[in-house]
Amino acid sequence: MLPLYRIILPLFSLLALIWVIYNGVKRKLDVQESLSWVFLFFILFVISFIPELIDIIAAFLGIDYPPSLLFVLAFLLLILLIFRLSKEISMIRLKEKQLAQKIALLEHDLLELKSKLDNEKKS
């Protein structure tokens, strides 16, 4: 009989893969963003389908309990994903700063122009 994780893992990665693609199609997730998640779940799916691959890599890396390799891999991939997201947040913050500054300066110019026009109308 197959161990339970060998059924749950491919099932989970397949469902997650479908869920990510569904969100991408529904435009709830940016295509660029969805790619890294698709990649992550695809790798998980492939690995969980070929258990021998896990055993070979685990033996090569000296991991006694092969399934824990999956956790290690998932952990590393998640760390990479989070780092990429942190970089994205930094860039968004930078753009947010520039936009807020631009809006503040333009709003001031606009109000000044408006009051100039009002004064001209009055006179």
Binding site: E96, K97, A100, Q101, I103, A104, L105, E107, H108
Partner: peptide, 18 residues
């Protein structure tokens, strides 16, 4: 006096730079 308005809070340094 002159007043500039950031649409949201972006920080002390950003306000200085504006």
């Amino acid at each position: 006096i002159y007043v500039l308005n950031h649409p949201c809070n972006i920080g002390y340094g950003a306000a200085l730079q504006t």
